[in-house]
């Protein structure tokens, strides 16, 4: 555990050369430290996601959280920007990838970076973590109950979200998936389909599914928090990132 941290809001270059904001948490020390980009959920660039970044820094990772809704409200609070993003149809996948790529590239400017970068996403960010694993040059990815990797979204859904399981054949890196068996988005059957596709393409992956847990079981400030699943999940995450990202 690294008790000394520095953490601050920074500016990074995102999709299309746009400047967006991000939260960066770093352990104090010379490193070398791997990097983890944390993808926030639909409600936005919020306190709970920033707390996740702080947890990674405590465990010896450089952690960055790009604000994927920055453009919708550069002068607004993150919750207002998230609402505006939702109203405008959500974050297009291409723009997300550009912003995440900018966040991962930022690690290279830090002298203590060890050159290995992973991503982790929760909820809608879980789908985006899978998308990143299939689209960007990263070293490991964690999908926490990402919806609509598999399965058609509800009829008439106005957001620009489509199933992306077909991208599995492009997957670049090992994938860890953590799912609750009581979840409706994704259902255990959706997870089965994703796992079958990963097997078919010969991907390196590891799935853990928790009984008695539904969507959002990592959320400590919500009724769906399941301490047993979340505690085990965190152990899996650090073991997985430790295997693929830590170099010293």
């Amino acid at each position: 555990m690294y008790s000394g941290l520095t953490a601050e809001e920074i500016r990074i270059t995102g999709h299309g050369g746009d400047e967006i904001n991000a939260y960066l948490a770093r352990p104090v020390g010379p490193g070398p430290f791997p990097g983890v980009a944390v993808i926030h959920h639909m409600p936005g660039w919020d306190e709970s996601t920033i707390e996740i970044a702080l947890k990674f820094a405590l465990h010896g990772y450089l952690a960055i959280v790009p604000n994927l809704h920055y453009r919708e409200g550069p002068d607004s609070s993150p919750d207002d920007a998230a609402a505006a993003s939702r109203g405008a149809g959500g974050v297009p996948d291409e723009r997300f990838l550009g912003d995440l790529s900018g966040a991962v590239d930022h690690f290279a400017s830090l002298p203590e970076f060890n050159g290995k970068a992973g991503v982790i996403g929760y909820c809608s960010g879980g789908r985006q973590a899978f998308l990143a694993a299939c689209s960007l040059e990263i070293d490991a990815a964690v999908d926490c109950y990402g919806a609509f990797v598999v399965g058609d979204p509800p009829e008439g859904m106005p957001l620009k979200v489509t199933p992306i399981v077909h991208l599995a054949e492009n997957i670049h890196c090992p994938l860890l998936g953590l799912f609750g068996n009581d979840d409706k988005f994704p259902t255990p059957e959706h997870v089965d389909v994703l796992e079958a596709e990963l097997k078919r393409v010969g991907a390196t992956y590891e799935f853990h599914r928790y009984d008695g847990a539904g969507h959002g079981f990592f959320s400590t400030d919500r009724a769906m928090y399941r301490p047993e699943a979340a505690t085990d999940g965190w152990e899996r995450i650090f073991e997985f990132f430790g295997r693929y990202l830590v170099t010293a």
């Binding site: 919750d79 998230a82 939702r86 109203g87 909820c123 539904g214 959002g216 400030d221 919500r222 009724a223």
Partner: peptide, 16 residues
């Protein structure tokens, strides 16, 4: 001008 209505995760309320 508009009301945007959705059933989803809240930002603040401590409910699922």
């Amino acid at each position: 001008s508009h009301a945007m209505t959705y059933f989803d995760h809240p930002y603040h309320s401590p409910y699922e």
